[in-house]
Amino acid sequence: MPMPERCERFAEYRDKVLELFASKGFGQVGMRELATCLGLAPGSLYHHYPSKQHLLADLIEEFYEELLATLGRLDKKAKRGMLPSLIQAHLNLHREMPWHFRLAERDSGCLNEDQQQRVRQLREQYECRLLLMLGAKSRLSAQGQLAAGHAIANLLNSAPGWLTQHALGEAERDELLESLVSGAVERLLRPSVPRAVA
């Protein structure tokens, strides 16, 4: 079932709603508080969004749409050095959309079943596209490839948060994260080598 069209005032609401959901937690924010934050009467907000889940769904959909658009832009470039380009693109996107990453990982389960299904479809498109761009070998079963795509997406989307408590410069942090993620992904995508029998 397709999602309803995004409210035309969504861009106007986005940043305030993102910050409120991400800082307080989706479950801790009510429609009345959302309306106050946006400078609207509760009835006006209900006119645009029947529930706060609809707002959350729009934010999470926007996140996956941007991830897919980012992959599309990268895919048009040369395939050489794709993994470092993918990692850098995700680090840049994390700097541009930090609240989106947090909501998508933490609060997707708060959506209704139809909304969760739509988010799953978008995430699966993104994960499959990642595998194709990385040239994943077919040594893995179909389920193994799905699992690999999911794991790689999780690495790319969570890596920027790994080093936040360390006082590193941006370049040093990015270099360290690229090494960590690329090492894991390259190992995963490497052709299988028979294991030595003990």
Rank of each mutant, 00 (worst) to 15 (best):
D174K: 03
H94V: 10
K52Y: 01
F26W: 13
Y64S: 05
N112T: 10
D114Y: 08
K137R: 11
E12C: 07
G144K: 06
A167H: 13
V119Y: 02
E61D: 04
N92V: 14
M97I: 04
S108P: 03
A198N: 10
K16R: 14
T164D: 14
L130G: 08
R106G: 06
L177H: 05
V185I: 15
L18M: 10
S179P: 01
C110E: 15
A35F: 09
G169R: 05
L59E: 01
S182N: 06
E175C: 13
F26Y: 15
A69Q: 05
S51Y: 03
L71K: 12
S85E: 09
V17G: 00
A151S: 13
Q117E: 10
L91A: 11
A22D: 13
D114C: 03
E175N: 11
A11T: 01
T164V: 02
N157K: 13
N112E: 14
L155M: 13
M3Q: 04
S23Y: 10
L38R: 12
E12D: 05
P2C: 00
L68H: 09
Q115N: 04
S179Y: 09
A57V: 00
A78F: 00
K137Y: 01
P194E: 15
L20S: 08
Q28G: 07
A69V: 09
E170L: 13
P98E: 07
H47E: 00
R118T: 10
E61K: 06
G161V: 06
G30M: 01
T36C: 06
L122I: 06
G183Y: 03
Q28W: 04
E65T: 10
L55D: 04
K79L: 11
S23A: 15
G109W: 13
E127I: 01
A196W: 09
F63G: 02
M1Y: 00
E19V: 12
T164Y: 01
D15C: 05
A167T: 08
A89D: 02
E8V: 12
L176A: 08
S51E: 06
L168K: 00
E96Y: 14
H90W: 11
L56H: 05
M133G: 11
L55I: 15
F63I: 04
R118G: 08
L18Q: 10
L93C: 12
M3Y: 00
S108T: 15
I60V: 14
H100I: 05
F10M: 09
S108M: 14
M133Y: 01
Q88S: 14
L45H: 05
